[in-house]
Design a protein around this nucleic acid. Structure first.
Ligand SMILES: [Mn+2]
Ligand SMILES: [Mn+2]
Ligand SMILES: [Zn+2]
Ligand SMILES: [Zn+2]
Lengths: 155, 155
DNA sequence: ATGATATTGATAATCGTTATCAAAATATTG
DNA sequence: CAATATTTTGATAACGATTATCAATATCAT
């Protein structure tokens, strides 16, 4: 009886007619374990640490695929490379980002999600009708200076 | 009497101890005329059309400088290159962006700025104190499908 | 003018990402 | 199972945006 516990995301592969390859599974597991934003290069390194032998091109390909499937979120913090993070549905982990423009530090926040939802709902309705635009997702970025960058501020 | 009308942004160069070179002036004028998002390459082309002979490296350098000075906004629509737009203060033109994930089209919107301001003020206060983070700016992106991409949707 | 400093242009280098294409893995068919 | 079709992969070349280098030029302060 191979009653394997199916992970949430496994059914998505069926839906998209994609195979759950060792590489893809490993990438998903990495994002489940590491709870942070990872670049393609970082994912590649973590895969090798696990003993998975994969090419960097495949990592890029699969990060792309997983993003299109909605299993990962692609985020851009302005440092010249893309980062990815897991799309968590249970528990929901809707959040946005504070980005320090000096040191690049990124902080996740999920304050006022209720109010955000309220505001964005209204806004989305407004924009959808006015611009005939189907809104599927949104991202909010705050830019500024983190605590340590402010204290080390001499110039 | 050379009572030249000083532009709003000219004093910023004083403040930052930077010189108003022909290249920098031309770039600012381009952004004043073209009311759109321009990539470095596009700015470079427009400069050459004007007869300004400048190197592409100088364009990159100055777009960077002008952004740091706050005269330009740097925006990223996920197409692999940075774009810039003028920071307009009078009249204030605070706005955000709708990005079509299929064709890349970008729409400026400034709906519900009042409500946005209200909400973001609260949020900023919350975040500033909780994370000891000095917030200086923010950007909101909506991703989805534009009208024409939705109608041409067959697959 | 003289010397110090800032800016520029040409071009090489860097670096993240994508394209290519043959080999390997996996699914489908008979 | 065997034969065939399809998907996925790895190695590596190519690409494209951006940055670094460095000598030449322009501008500033004395
Ligand atoms: Mn995050
Ligand atoms: Mn805009
Ligand atoms: Zn910082
Ligand atoms: Zn579109």
């Amino acid at each position: 009886m191979k009653n394997k516990v199916e992970k949430e995301w496994e059914k998505e592969f069926d839906y998209f007619n994609k195979r759950i390859t060792p590489c893809r599974r490993a990438i998903m597991e990495i994002f489940e374990e590491e709870e942070r934003h990872l670049s393609a290069e970082e994912v590649y390194m973590l895969l090798r640490e696990r003993g998975e032998k994969v090419g960097i091109a495949t990592v890029y390909r699969n990060l792309d695929l997983l993003s299109q499937m909605g299993l990962l979120h692609r985020v851009n913090f302005g440092d010249g490379r893309e980062h990815y993070e897991m799309t968590r549905v249970s528990p929901p982990q809707h959040h946005h980002h504070l980005v320090c423009t000096r040191c690049g530090k990124v902080i996740d926040y999920s304050e006022l999600v209720r109010e955000e939802h309220e505001f964005l709902d209204r806004l989305e309705r407004e924009l959808s009708s006015k611009y005939d635009f189907l809104i599927q997702s949104h991202q909010i970025y705050f830019y500024g200076l983190c605590e340590s960058c402010r204290s080390n501020f001499e110039s």
